[in-house]
Nucleic acid binder design. Structure first.
Length: 565
DNA sequence: CATGATAGCGCG
DNA sequence: AAAGCGCGCTATCATG
């Protein structure tokens, strides 16, 4: 995993104070070599010139705050060290003896609602000397990174910082979205759009049918308590109105009610109101929040970017003269587990595009469905049901992989901290959790309290069990993204009709990211080359994490007009 | 009228 | 076919 540490790259810090930008050039050892002050107007041009000349690694407070302005001015950064993102990693990491001292000034403000203004000064925290404070924080982070002898934190911080850049670039570029296709999907599914207020026609019909069967013409179907009572009145004795429980009942109301709920969900989550609010100039522009999930996965804010229903994917459509490259990894997490554990038997099962088929071939289980439930159960900590029943069979065939997740669960149950492959660590359990556990060990503890404490301990163990796998998968994806971006930056501008909008009107670019899937928007003539870049990037991500360990991470990749399967 | 908790469902 | 991980968002409803 160590391999590529870039040779003798310059490092320069950009700090912002009262509308002015101070750029400090640093030596290899972090000492100051040079300093200059630039106005907001001059900064982009100067930065662009530096990128041309020697492309330093820019130390910035945060891509989220500083990059949109540069992008708007047409300037891209090749490499950064993002102090806010790395602070979160280095503060919590258990992979060095002395992690970074936490500092309130370097904790990202969570609410993502307001887009950062162009070169806005962060008012919330106004240090006396922002330059000195940033330098001090950078040096502190550097010391922690260097304490990790094997280079894992170096790689993680570089990848996380690159993710910060990708997130802003994807927001600026947007996901190409065909409003007419979206509208026609809505009309076909929901029925004709209401002229003013009210529900679309199919929902009205379904709602009327449900109310008729339930014998209550004025029933408000969106009220869970009222719907529950109405169901009970006609003999459907469910405890909830969830679709799984409803589906178990054989009653004429079930079919139209489930259909109504499905449509209702589409209308409220991604209906015409969503379209009007979130899609402009043919682009959907969500806010991505790198590292927004404890495991290192990205979160998003606004528009529900990570929950776009599959039914709307046909609306994701390349501009004229452009193509989409849609690529994802099948079963990324169990592949990561096999490699982390060095489990050769599981790696053998992971050869090729279907890991579950490989598990069946190993003889552990009989069918692909069983393999799927067993593997998911192993990573999530299932103990009951069909999934829980199958897990012990995996323990026989893949003892190393299972030992890794079982140990992560044990550590969590004991209140300990676990880490991903590159050293992102799980949060410690809450003080309440710890108090509950210690009370449960008292000699005169109430048996009921002991039982609750045991359950909470197992809950936390399932979290830490999954943390190591989900978090390492997030690291693979982050390196994949960074490597894709790196390769695309080397592409020449293409002679195509300019893309409809965004700062990358003649350049192939990343357009969407969802845990283990990417969508690129690329000039048609560059589609094959960009697809190769995506494949190479995946191979590099695997090698950088696991060296020569033989683990397949195959991509399902296609070049297409739309993102629909 | 605003805020917070809960149910439910979409995604991986 | 199942119920075990991580999220964001909407609507409803109780509470301040």
């Amino acid at each position: 995993m160590s391999s590529r540490q870039s040779a003798e790259r310059r490092v320069a810090l950009i700090a912002t104070a009262s509308g002015q930008h101070v750029v400090v050039e640093l030596g290899e050892d972090g000492t100051e070599l040079d300093r200059r002050t630039l106005t907001a107007r001059d900064l982009p041009e100067w930065v662009a010139a530096q990128e041309q000349e020697n492309a330093p690694r820019w130390i910035i407070r945060s891509a989220r705050e500083q990059y949109p302005g540069l992008l708007a001015a047409g300037v891209r950064l090749a490499r950064t060290h993002d102090l806010l993102l790395c602070h979160a990693i280095l503060r919590d990491t258990a992979s060095v003896a002395r992690p970074l001292a936490p500092s309130p000034a370097w904790i990202r403000r969570e609410p993502a609602d307001e887009a950062p203004a162009l070169f806005d000064v962060v008012e919330q925290h106004a240090p006396a000397d922002p330059v000195a404070e940033a330098l001090e924080q950078y040096r502190a982070q550097r010391r922690v990174i260097q304490d990790s002898a094997d280079g894992r934190l170096t790689l993680l911080c570089a990848a996380e910082s690159a993710g910060g850049l990708v997130a802003e670039e994807m927001r600026a570029a947007g996901l190409p979205w065909d409003e007419r296709v979206h509208d026609s999907i809505l009309t076909e599914t929901l029925g004709t759009r209401p002229i003013s207020g009210g529900l679309p026609s199919r929902m009205v019909e379904l709602g009327d049918r449900v109310r008729e069967i339930l014998g209550d013409p004025s029933l408000h179907l969106d009220s869970q308590p009222k719907l529950l009572r109405a169901l009970h009145r006609v003999g459907v004795h469910v405890e909830s109105t969830g679709k799984w429980e409803l589906a178990e009942h054989d009653h004429p109301v079930v079919e139209p009610l489930l259909a109504y709920k499905k449509l209702s969900r589409l209308l409220s989550a991604n209906g015409w109101a969503w379209l009007a609010e979130w899609v402009h100039d043919g682009r959907f522009r969500p806010v991505y929040i790198p590292g927004g999930v404890v495991t290192g996965r990205w979160a998003s804010a606004g528009g529900g970017a990570l929950q776009l229903p599959r039914s709307l994917r046909p609306a994701v459509r390349a501009d004229d003269g452009w193509k989409l490259i849609v690529a994802d990894v099948a079963q990324l997490e169990p592949r990561m587990l096999a490699a982390m554990a060095g489990d050769r038997a599981m790696a053998t099962a992971a050869q090729g595009s279907d890991l579950y088929a490989g598990v069946v071939d190993s003889g552990a289980v009989a069918t692909r469905e069983e393999a799927k439930y067993a593997v998911l159960g192993a990573m999530y900590g299932a103990t009951t049901g069909d999934s829980g029943r199958l897990v012990p069979r995996l323990r026989k065939v893949y003892p190393q992989a299972m030992a890794l997740v079982d140990e992560a669960a044990r550590v969590g149950e004991d209140g300990g901290v676990v880490s991903t492959w590159l050293g992102r660590s799980s949060p410690p359990p809450s003080p309440e959790w710890a108090r509950m556990q210690s009370r449960a060990t008292d000699a005169d503890a109430d048996p009921a309290d002991v039982a609750v404490a045991r359950r909470r301990a197992r809950d936390w163990g399932r979290f830490t069990r999954n943390f190591v796998v989900q978090g390492t998968a997030a690291e693979w994806s982050l390196i994949w993204l960074a490597e894709i971006r790196h390769r695309l930056q080397g592409f020449p501008p293409a002679a195509v009709p300019a893309a409809a909008s965004g700062p990358f009107r003649s350049m192939p670019h990343l357009s969407f990211f969802l845990h283990d899937e990417v969508i690129l928007h690329v000039p048609e003539e560059q589609a094959e080359a960009a697809a190769d870049a995506v494949r190479e990037a995946a191979a590099v991500a695997t090698r950088r994490l696991f060296g020569s360990f033989p683990i397949d991470v195959p991509l399902d990749l296609r070049i297409a007009e739309t993102a629909a399967k």
